[in-house]
């Protein structure tokens, strides 16, 4: 009888302790990685390689997502707002939604799928094939060599991607607004920029930088801690994408609250 009550409690306790250990480990991992960003040697070549991988090679998927999101947003807003004769606000709704929210979140989710998985798989494979131990024996700190350049690259690349996503998303909305919904092009654009404020864009870019950090952190951490061969690397990749996606959505709320709560 006692076991019936105590066993679930013990399981809950074990899960709680495991969660605390994981959070602590990720935090220490992040602090160590950040500390390597300000201590030489610096690996500019690796930073650049990671930056190109994130910013340039993620551009097509982020651009397509942004364009279609802008188009859908314009169409949905039109059909919804028509009920209240508020169609004239569509341009501002599109631009504010994109810059504050959809641009950073959707771009980050796309990059999490592409780059988070890639980081976890690459570093995880290095872990299970002793390449990370080999780095240590070759007078190279693995955190400095593998993690720090990727973190920095993601923090810089994500805002740039989001900036592009914002522009393309607005263009998507403009396309639908002018060619399908019959808005006058100049009026649509004027409405777009009249209601757009610098804070809308800046908050989106700050979110993007935070999301970039989270994506790179979870990708590298999951890869770095992976074990058990191919299955372990597969698990690390899945965990990296799932956890970074959830963290992106959770942090999006926290940051929105911080920026815009009255």
């Amino acid at each position: 009888m006692a076991a019936l009550i105590l066993d679930p409690l013990a399981a809950l306790g074990r899960a709680t302790l495991a969660a605390c250990r994981t959070i602590g480990d990720v935090t220490l991992f992040a602090l160590e990685a950040v500390s390597h960003l300000v201590r030489p040697p610096f690996y500019g070549r690796l930073f650049w390689r990671a930056f190109v991988e994130i910013a340039w090679f993620s551009l097509p998927v982020v651009a397509l997502t942004a364009v279609f999101t802008g188009m859908v947003l314009a169409l949905q807003s039109y059909t919804g707002f028509a009920r209240f004769n508020a169609q004239s606000t569509i341009a501002s709704v599109v631009v504010i939604s994109l810059t504050r929210e959809l641009g950073p979140v959707l771009a980050a989710l796309m990059v999490a799928g592409r780059i988070g998985a890639s980081f976890a798989a690459e570093i995880g494979t290095m872990r299970v094939t002793d390449q990370i131990d080999a780095l240590t024996t070759l007078s190279t700190n693995p955190m400095k060599y593998l993690v720090a350049p990727r973190l920095l690259a993601a923090v810089i690349a994500l805002p740039l991607l989001v900036l592009v996503a914002d522009v393309l998303g607005v263009m998507g909305g403009w396309l639908i607004g002018t060619y399908k919904l019959g808005f006058v092009s100049a009026a649509y654009l004027k409405s777009t920029f009249d209601y757009l404020e610098a804070d809308d864009v800046i908050s989106g870019l700050v979110k993007a930088a935070v999301f970039g950090f989270v994506i790179a952190l979870m990708g590298t951490w999951c890869g770095y801690r992976s074990k058990g061969g191919a299955q372990g690397v597969g698990g690390a990749t899945t965990t990296a994408v799932v956890t970074s996606s959830i963290l992106i959505l959770a942090l999006d709320y926290v940051l929105t609250e911080a920026f815009f709560a009255q």
């Binding site: 690459e122 290095m126 094939t129 002793d130 390449q131 080999a134 240590t136 024996t137 007078s139």
Partner: peptide, 20 residues
């Protein structure tokens, strides 16, 4: 420890060569 590591070489079982 790092200075000592500079004087040590290691051949890993599977080579552990860097693919990239």
């Amino acid at each position: 420890r790092e200075a000592l590591g500079d004087r040590i070489g290691m051949l890993f079982q599977n080579g552990a060569l860097f693919d990239s």
